[in-house]
Structures are given as C-alpha cells and as structure tokens.
Nucleic acid binder design. Structure first.
Length: 792
DNA sequence: CGTACCGCTTTTTTT
DNA sequence: AAGCGGTACG
C-alpha cells in the first residue's frame, strides 16, 4: 500500500515541516514564518495526501490569492507526482468562485456568459450610475462609493444588511442598491460579487453545500492572514465548523499563514481570522515553522527585533543555520537623487563581484519613488525591470478591444458600450449619448436596445455603431478566437486609429500582442483536445447520483475546467467568453522585458513571497516609510512595521537600507527625518556606511561632519568583499534661499551649538529641528531664530 | 462635436 | 511631476 512508503516526499523536510505535512485529516493552522518553506509544505501536504491514498485529486481544494501562487503550486505538485492537477480545484479565491458560478449560474441568477468587471470597469460603472441618478459627486466621490461598496461586499453585506446610522450612509446604501440592480441588468459581476454570490449560493442551497462539503475532503488555504471576512465565511461553507450535537462535516481545513506578514488590512484583510479559525473550528493542530532557510542571521535578527516592537502578535521567532553573514548596510544620502546614484554604483560593484542582476532588488514604499531610481539606472545603462503599474489587460487600448469583444457576446453590457461607442471618434458626442441614456432609462432597457428610440442625427450615428457591432457579431459567428479578434481590431478602426496617432506605435503593438495572447490561451486551455470533464465525486469517480445533478439543478454540473463541455448538454462555454474571463481574472504580466538579466524594482507589497541575494530598501524616512497616512493609529503603524518586516526578510545575503535627507514628492522638496524603524533594529547587526547622525538619544554629533557638504557623504569604512567602495556622485543642491541643511552644525545665540536634524517647509514657513546638547531637541522657525552655520 | 488648456490630487494592490 | 477631469473655445 502506498501509505506505508511516503518517505520520498518527506526527505529533506525538518521535523516541523514533516509534522505539518503528515498531520491527520483534521483542521490545522500552520504558522509559517518568512522563508520557512511554506509553499513546500503546502504542496508536499497535497502530494502526501494523494500518494498515501487518503484523497483523490477531485477531493482537494487549494486556494491562493494570486494566480502566480496558484501556478507555482501546480507546477511544483506535478513535479512531485504524476497527477492530473486539473482534476483538483487549485486556484485563486476569485478563480474558484468563477468556476463555481459558471457551473451554478442558474441558481446564482446569472447569465452563463456573465462578464467580470475589474476595478476600472467598476469605477466607470459607478460614475455612470451617479450621473444618471444625479448623485452629488462632491459629497459622494465615485472612488469613495467604490470603496464603500467593495467594503460592504467584503464584509458579506448586501444593501439591506448595512446598518444605517446617518443620512450619508443611507444615501450610500441607496446607491449600492442601484449599483447592484445595474450590474444585474447588464449581466456583469465585480470581484467582490464573485465571492459574495458564490458564498450565498452555498449558504442558501443545502444540497449544493452538502455536495461540496462531501466532495472536498481537504481544503488548503495559503496566506490565510490575508483573508477578509467574506473569504473566511466562504471557506466555512465548504467545511462547517463543528456544531454541538451534529456529526462533524468530516473534511479538513489546512490553513497556512503568518500574522507578521499581514500587509493588506487596508483592503479588508483580517488577521483576526486566524484566531477565529482556531476557536470556531476547534483547531487541535497548530504548528510553527520557525526555521528560516533564506537569510543570514544578521538579516534575520534585524527582522525579528523590528517586529518585536509590534503588540498583538501570535508570537514567533525565526532562526537560521546560515551563519551571521554580512551586516546590514545603512546609508544616508543627501537627496533621493544621490540615493539612487549611490545604489547604482553599489550595484555595479555587486555585478562585478559576479551577482546576476536578477538577484538584486530595489524595494520602495510607494510607486512614485521608482522614477528617480529608474532614471539613474537608465543613465548608467543598467538593465532593470519595474513591477507594478499597468498590466497588459489593463491598458487602455486593450480594454477598448476587449469592450468590442464583450459587446459581441453581450450587447447589453453598457459599460463596454459606453467605452467604445465613440472610440475611435465617430461623431457621437456627449449630447447624443445623453439622449440615448434618457431613452434607455425611460424604457428600462440597455443602451443597445434604446437606439431605435433616438431620433435625428444622433440616432443615425449611434444606429451605425450598433449596426457595426451586429455585422461583426454575424461575421464572427463561425470564426476562431484569433480570427474574431483580428476582425474586431480591423473593423472597429482601433488599429487604424492608433496607427495615425503620433505616439500610437506601442499601442498598435499591444493590440497585435492581444492576438498572440488569445492564441496561446487557446493552446493552453486545450481547445480541440478532448477536454471533457465529467462531474466527479470525492473519490474522483464520475458523479451521477449527486444531489446536485439529481434533478435539483441538472444544468449545473461540476465543471472542472472553464472550457469543459457541459456534461449534460455537451454545450461548451465559447472560447471568447473563456478568454474574456481569463483577461479579467488574470490581468497579465507587467511590461515584460523578459529574457534580459535585469535589476528588479518593485514596491514592498509586490515583493511579498519573493527573495533575492541582495536587497535595497529605500526611502526609510518618516512620512514615507512609515507612510504618513498610516501614522495616526496604532494598527496602521503596526502594518507599516510588518511591511518593513516583509521587506527585510526578502534578502538572502546582503541587505541595504537607505534614506535621503531631501526628497522630491508631488513636485515639492521635502525634508524627512530618518525613519523610526532604524531605532528598532539591533545596532550589532548594522553597519553605518554614513555616520549615524541625528539620533536624539546620542551625543555623537560633535566632531562629525555628516551629511551634505559638497553633496553625498563618504562611506566611513571600506566594505567587506566589495573592494573599492564607490564615491557617491555629488547630489544636486538647488538653492533654497536658506543655508540651513539637515546634518549641519549651527550656532544659536541662546542655545549655543547644535546639530540640525531636519528642515521642513520653505520660505517664511521654513523651520529646522535642531539638537542642542544642553537644551535638547528644538524646532525653530528659520525666519525668527538666528542660526549661523558652524564650519569646524 | 472635438480639442486644448487649466487646475486639482496624490499609499500600499490582487482579483 | 504628471495624469485626469472639467471647462472653454473653434
């Protein structure tokens, strides 16, 4: 029996990992620290369950947050076992919800071909709604409404569930209600709706719920600390927590998470789900993975020390066998410009020492910081890749093309209709569209159906547009996906339009790339191959007697692939619908300058789950990191600290933490204090490449010439295996009309000599923070206080 | 109807 | 600085 020989899978696992992998089929919580082999444990657990015959592929559900993580899991799993990963439900929350809703579209009250709104689509749908209902967008900004609606859904609230205490909320709920009606009318579903709708189907349909509860014996969840209320409730539907007096549902939830890496509270994630899970599911197995396989101890101890400043932790301390390694390097630059320059020089050295560029990462708190760094890298001719920003399917030209495609499938999709009715421009202006919307509102139909009611020139112009769509629909009926897209790009005039545009070159290329994307999608999803997937029971055997197919909902079999033919009718979801779904759920890669060995630039958020030999964490300044918008409350501050914890733990061998005295932000020069996080790192693990200046508690200022004289400070030491340290390029120091700068030694008639810690504001408002040895730290208005620079 | 210009805002992000 | 939305003008 396979059960007796599971060892090959377990070799190389440490005792905790092995224990986690081989837990009995009961609920479990794995606290997996950064770099502790979390993904390995997760995939090995699945492989072990399958190999030991405890479950068949059809009985496994594994949920992740990103498509990348889901793919990674499938890849590693198929490397471990010869198993058909497609038989399993492995995917993102939203991907699985989509799969579920396509199968149960009737019960869910949706058209089978429902389209998915991404964040942009959702916002424009809300704007349109507000205009139509004369909502004051001063009092109710669409962005805020979007946030409100998404928030409600994340908490599992329909409009009627929202507790209304004031008029403002009452109005918001009304708009929420109207928005729902609009989406329903148009046959579209936003991301929150995917989750909420499938949750409700499970909650309100006993046979369906029981079916899935019986089917999925093992439910595994990655990044559990990032789940929101609704996702947790959704999981509960698949596996009811034990109820007094009732037999347990008999399946096991295996949750893996790290409370210290919870960095998405700002979008509704609830770390508290971990504690709730333990309590509500009466979890008896909790395993901590504290052995770190990634970083040297100086890096790891820094992370440990930093995160220990947070309260409300579940408690965990990572350890490593990797040895001390190098000290964490701290660098203070005169400006953001100098910071970038210095990093580039340092990178060149790393490169000379044989480190591949792809093993170097630059992390920052916010995207706006990438610009200076990009410029410096570009000027130095150093290849780099920026993560974040617009992804392929989010580009305007691609969204236009997709809108045409969506209209072929569903003419009543008003969001798509409005996006392209006058794009490329065809003489249909705001006035005409208003007329059309009026007709549609009066007769309660879609814009498409309202055309006949519009008279005059506008009626003709819009009529032509609708006719164009109808012709396209007709002509593409029997076409392959590739042909459909090519025809749409041509007949819509999109390609022609961008060709004529001066800077439209890239856009044309992107549109052509869309054809390739479709082509490779078709290949991957295996059209033409026999992708028949029959509903299966928990043993993986064909499911013919399940309550679901037993008459309750004969048209809603369990699809195993989005493109699989319907088991009952043989009907397939068209390749076009499948592709559109794919486009909405997987927004595609960012600017893939792939292939080239390049330095990696990204926000700290985007770096979660990744690791690099050398990491630069930049802009460690009060107001930036921690971000000013997070500094008001303790929860925000603790999330910033976790963010820094995530950043630190990305590094394997070498870690740099940098900050700048001045920085351009929103077109203004800002003078930031060094981040408080520096004071929360263990001094013994740090190496200050520039003098540690301005610490309020130290008196080490005297006699040191720190900071910006002549731009950029000299490293105070010779770096270890980096032979010659690069002298930083001089920072440009625009004349600000005052000579007082951070790092300077100044003289005050009353307080004597002191050291300038920071300068803020400009002109008459300029003030400086100065540390006087006898009188402590003071803020002084430069227009009032007489400060004279002291040159030693 | 379409274009040009002015003024306002600005975290983090996946689906 | 830069992108987006609103307004004014051709």
């Amino acid at each position: 029996m396979l059960f007796e020989d599971p060892s090959p899978l377990l070799t190389g696992l440490n005792p905790e990992q092995a224990a986690a992998v081989t837990l009995p089929p009961e609920h479990a919580l794995i606290l997996a620290g950064a770099g502790s082999g979390k993904t390995r444990v997760l995939t090995t657990r699945i492989a072990w369950l399958l190999q030991s015959g405890q479950v068949s592929p059809g009985g496994v559900m594994a949920v992740t947050f990103t498509n990348k993580a889901a793919k990674e899991m499938m890849t590693r799993l198929s490397a471990m076992l010869p198993v058909n990963v497609r038989g399993m439900w492995i995917g993102t929350f939203h991907g699985l919800c989509n799969r579920f809703l396509r199968a149960h579209y009737q019960v869910a009250g949706l058209p089978q071909t429902f389209q998915i709104l991404d964040t942009q689509d959702q916002l424009s749908a809300i704007k349109r709604l507000c205009k139509q209902h004369n909502v004051d967008d001063e009092r109710f900004p669409p962005k805020q409404l979007q946030w409100f609606i998404s928030g409600c859904k994340e908490d599992g609230h329909r409009p009627r569930d929202v507790v209304v205490r004031d008029d403002e909320t009452r109005r918001k709920v009304e708009i929420y209600q109207l928005y729902e009606e609009q989406c329903q009318r148009e046959g579209v579903v936003d991301f929150g709706e995917l989750m909420l709708r499938s949750y409700e189907v499970l909650r309100d349909n006993d046979p369906i719920r029981v079916h899935y509860q019986r089917r999925f014996r093992h439910i595994l969840i990655d990044e559990f600390q990032d789940t929101n209320r609704l996702q947790y409730a959704w999981i509960k539907m698949f596996s009811s927590p034990p109820i007094e007096g009732l037999p347990p549902s008999g399946n096991a939830v295996f949750a893996v998470g790290d409370d210290d890496q919870s960095i998405y509270a700002f979008r509704g994630a609830r770390v508290g789900n971990m504690a709730d899970f333990v309590r509500e599911f009466q979890v008896r197995h909790q395993i901590k993975l504290e052995q770190n396989y990634r970083s040297c101890s100086n890096i790891l101890n820094s992370a440990n020390e930093l995160i220990s400043h947070n309260s409300r932790r579940l408690g965990k301390n990572l350890r490593t066998d990797a040895g001390e390694g190098e000290l964490v390097r701290v660098y203070e630059a005169a400006s953001d410009f100098a910071e970038a320059q210095w990093m580039v020089d340092e990178m060149k050295q790393l490169e000379r020492d044989g480190l591949p560029r792809s093993e170097i990462a630059v992390l920052y708190r916010s995207n706006a910081q990438s610009r200076v760094i990009e410029t410096a890298l570009f000027n130095a001719g150093m290849p780099y890749r920026v993560y974040g920003g617009l992804r392929f399917f989010e580009r305007a030209e691609i969204k236009h093309a997709l809108a045409y495609l969506r209209l072929l499938e569903n003419p009543h999709d008003d969001t798509s209709f409005l996006r392209v009715v006058n794009f490329p421009p065809r003489g249909i202006g705001a006035r005409s569209i208003e007329q059309l919307q009026d007709v549609a509102r009066v007769s309660g139909c879609s814009l498409h159906d309202a055309v006949s009611g519009v008279t005059g020139r506008a009626g003709v112009a819009i009529g032509n547009f609708v006719a164009l769509l109808d012709v396209m629909r007709e002509r593409t009926e029997a076409m392959t996906l590739r042909e459909i897209i090519e025809l749409v790009l041509d007949k819509s005039g999109l390609i022609e339009h961008f060709r004529a545009e001066r800077e439209g070159e890239d856009r044309v290329e992107n549109l052509e790339e869309l054809v390739n994307a479709a082509e490779s999608f078709v290949m991957q999803e295996g059209f033409g191959r026999d992708a028949v997937a029959l509903p299966v029971d928990e043993q993986g055997a064909p499911l013919t007697q399940s309550p679901v197919s037993q008459g309750l909902d004969p048209d809603a079999p369990v699809l195993n692939e989005s493109l699989a033919p319907d088991a009952e009718t043989g009907e397939t979801l068209s390749p076009l619908v499948a592709f559109l779904t794919h486009a909405a759920l997987e927004s595609g890669d960012n600017q893939a300058q792939a292939g080239q060995d390049a330095v990696q630039l990204m926000t700290v958020h985007a770096a979660k789950g990744l690791e690099f030999d050398a990491v630069f964490i930049t802009g460690l300044e009060e107001g930036l990191f921690p971000h000013e918008n997070s500094m008001s409350d303790r929860d925000g501050m603790e999330e910033e600290r976790r963010l820094m914890y995530v950043a630190i733990t990305r590094a394997r061998k070498r870690l740099y933490i940098t900050h700048a005295q001045t920085r351009m932000l929103h077109g203004q020069t800002r003078y930031n204090l060094r981040s408080r996080f520096f004071d929360e790192l263990p001094e013994a693990c740090l190496k200050w490449l520039t003098p540690k200046a301005g610490a309020p508690m130290t008196s080490s200022w005297s006699g040191q010439r720190a900071g910006s004289h002549g731009g950029g400070a000299q490293p105070a030491w010779s770096p270890g295996w980096l032979s010659g340290a690069q002298a930083p390029a001089p920072a440009p120091e625009p004349d600000r009309g005052t000579d007082i700068r951070s790092g300077m030694k100044v003289f005050h008639t009353k307080f004597g000599e002191g050291k300038v810690l920071a300068v803020e504001g400009a002109g008459a408002d300029a003030r400086a923070q100065v540390n006087f040895p006898r009188h402590g730290v003071k803020w002084l208005a430069l227009s009032v206080a007489k400060l004279t620079p002291v040159t030693d």
